[in-house]
């Protein structure tokens, strides 16, 4: 039963992340929410690793953290480039991807 608490926490974190991604307008906040979702997944990995007594999950988490670091750098760079071009990071105003 111990596992369920971790999983529910991960679920809550993930859902908060999703809602944040869908509703917030500030690109930075959206970005942070994506990180939140990523880390909730990490939590699931770690939980199952501990629950099953298998180290694979924890190894995965290390990989994910490394990739996430690189991804954070790329994501922040995109936001900076966006700001330089559009003078805004409000996602409502960045709507050229349409018909």
């Amino acid at each position: 039963m111990e596992l369920n608490f971790y999983l529910i926490l991960a679920l809550l974190l993930f859902t908060i992340g999703v809602i944040g991604v869908l509703t917030r307008r500030n690109a930075i906040v959206v970005f942070m929410c994506i990180e939140l979702m990523l880390n909730s997944v990490n939590l699931v990995f770690v939980s199952f690793s501990s629950f099953l007594g298998n180290l694979n999950g924890q190894i995965f988490v290390f990989f994910i953290m490394t990739v996430a670091a690189a991804e954070a750098a790329v994501g922040l760079a995109i936001i900076i480039a966006l700001y330089r071009n559009k003078s805004t990071i409000n996602l409502d105003e960045i709507n050229i991807l349409k018909w």
């Binding site: 869908l22 509703t23 996602l91 991807l97």
Partner: peptide, 14 residues
């Protein structure tokens, strides 16, 4: 449907 706002597309995806 094609609003141009990324988050709307994300809603469909979700």
């Amino acid at each position: 449907l094609q609003t141009g706002i990324i988050q709307d597309y994300a809603v469909f995806s979700v």
